[in-house]
Amino acid sequence: MTNDVIIRRTIEWMEGHLHEEVTAEDIAAQAGFSKFHFHRLFQSAVGMSFTEYLRLRRLTNAALALIHTDERIIDIAMHYCFDSQEVFTRAFKKVYGFPPGQYRRQMMSLMKMKEEKQMEETLKGWFLSGSHPFNYEMGADVETVHQGKQSGYLKSKTVTPAEGEFATMMQQFKADRYRGKRMKLSAFLKTEDVQHMASLWMRVDSASEEVLQFDNMSDRPIQSTSNWNHYTIVLDIPENSAVISFGMILSGSGCIWADSVTFEEVDEKTPTTNLQTEIVMLDEPVNLAFEES
């Protein structure tokens, strides 16, 4: 089992225990490592310690509860395992800049004032593409969030899309400053009722539009309904690269949410996930009678 799989399974376990008292030892035990070894693995993959991750996820869910419910602040604090309202307030203010009560008032006021916008206006840098983009929609979601105040989503508008129908919420940019580097695309993803598959994807093209590197997680797709988890793609950016594209893809019906997307350089020790393989030329024809397996 790879470290990425172990980390995803552990995150899935943590997501199911946000309301329970768990220790660092409990989390490490789920991963099957010592606390200190798993701390290093998790920090390297996710960019924060697993205890920081758990605390941040609790605060994010508490922030959503403040905005979208009328629960008392003390009840929200207790529900997300903070020892007191004072402890919760200090932790919340450190992340969101305001104490919980003020945050609730300001965010609810902003939500009432904010007019609905088209996805091109609300999600700077992202655009919709694919085989049937008009049958899908993308936008910002303030209720389903992994970190911060909102996530991005891509969902189908038709109940039964045609076979092979898909859309992608994507970005595209010049490869110039990344040539010769190994880059890692990471994101936290969540899905609901995905009929076929959902995933991250990334592609590197030359100036002549030749695909140089590519991964769409077809060998590890996300299906059906899944909670927030961490996914990565790692590709080399060859010297003849011209364009880098990446995003989230949804094939068939359903919905995928994305949050905390990162794009960063990694060293040669990090294995690539490239699905493009070089064609190996044989020296001579083989199996002409079709009897060899």
Results as ranks from 00 to 15, higher is better:
His17Asp: 07
Thr232Met: 07
Gly247Ile: 11
Thr277Cys: 09
Ala24Ser: 14
Lys124Met: 09
Leu185Gln: 07
Gly16Lys: 14
Glu192Lys: 07
Pro161Trp: 10
Asp26Gln: 13
Asn240Arg: 11
Arg58Pro: 02
Gln106Arg: 13
Leu275Met: 11
Leu212Gly: 02
Met197Phe: 01
Pro271Asp: 08
Met113Trp: 10
Met248Thr: 14
Arg179Gly: 04
Gly125Met: 04
Val87Cys: 00
Asn287Leu: 06
Glu21Val: 14
Trp228Val: 13
Glu20Leu: 11
Leu288Tyr: 02
Ile249Glu: 12
Ser84Lys: 04
Phe42Asn: 06
Glu209Leu: 00
Glu192Gly: 01
Met48Pro: 04
Val95Phe: 02
Ala24Pro: 02
Gly32Tyr: 13
Phe246Thr: 02
Leu154Gly: 14
Arg177Trp: 05
Leu282Trp: 04
Met113Val: 10
Thr273His: 07
Leu18Met: 08
Gln213Pro: 02
Val145Arg: 13
Arg220Asp: 10
Leu41Lys: 10
Ala91Ser: 08
Val286Phe: 06
Ala77Cys: 01
His132Trp: 05
Tyr153Ile: 13
Val159Ile: 15
Gln118Asp: 15
Ala24Gln: 12
Val46Met: 03
Val142Glu: 15
Arg182Pro: 04
Trp126Phe: 14
Gln171Val: 14
Val243Glu: 08
Arg177Met: 06
Thr270Gln: 11
Asn274Lys: 07
Ser226Arg: 14
Glu239Arg: 00
Ser224Met: 04
Tyr231Pro: 05
Phe38Trp: 13
Asp83Thr: 09
Met119Asn: 08
Ile7His: 02
Arg57Ala: 09
Glu116His: 10
Thr2Ile: 04
Ser218Phe: 09
Ser199Cys: 03
Phe214Lys: 00
His146Phe: 15
Glu192Thr: 05
Asp259Tyr: 11
Leu288His: 03
Pro238Met: 03
Asp259Asn: 15
Ile6Gln: 08
Ala198Ile: 01
Met1Leu: 14
His132Gly: 02
Gly139Ala: 13
Ala29Pro: 10
Val286Arg: 13
Pro221Arg: 05
Leu288Asp: 05
Ile222Pro: 01
Asp141Arg: 12
Lys114Pro: 04
His17Arg: 10
Ala91Ile: 01
Ser293Thr: 10
Asp267Glu: 11
Thr272Gln: 03
Leu235Pro: 01
Thr158Phe: 09
Phe42Ser: 09
Val145Gln: 12
Phe42Lys: 09
Ser84Gln: 06
Asp4Met: 04
Tyr53Thr: 06
Thr158Leu: 14
Ile7Arg: 02
Val194Arg: 03
Gln276Ile: 11
Asp193Glu: 01
Ala24Thr: 11
Gln43Glu: 10
Ser156Lys: 13
Gln150Ser: 15
Glu292Ala: 11
Met111His: 13
His68Phe: 15
Asn229Lys: 07
Ile237Gln: 01
Tyr153Glu: 14
Ser199Tyr: 00
Val87Lys: 07
Ala62Trp: 06
Tyr153Cys: 14
Phe50Asp: 10
Ile76His: 06
Val46Glu: 07
Phe42Tyr: 09
Lys94Ala: 03
Leu128Glu: 09
Ile249Tyr: 05
Gly252Arg: 02
Ile27His: 11
Phe188Gly: 02
Ala187Ile: 05
Thr69Ala: 10
Thr270Phe: 06
Gln106Leu: 15
Gln276Asp: 04
Lys155Leu: 13
Arg104Val: 05
Thr69Phe: 10
Gly16Ala: 10
Cys255Trp: 03
Val204Lys: 00
Val194Ala: 00
Glu20Phe: 10
Phe82Asn: 01
Arg177Gln: 04
Asn3Glu: 12
Val5Asp: 12
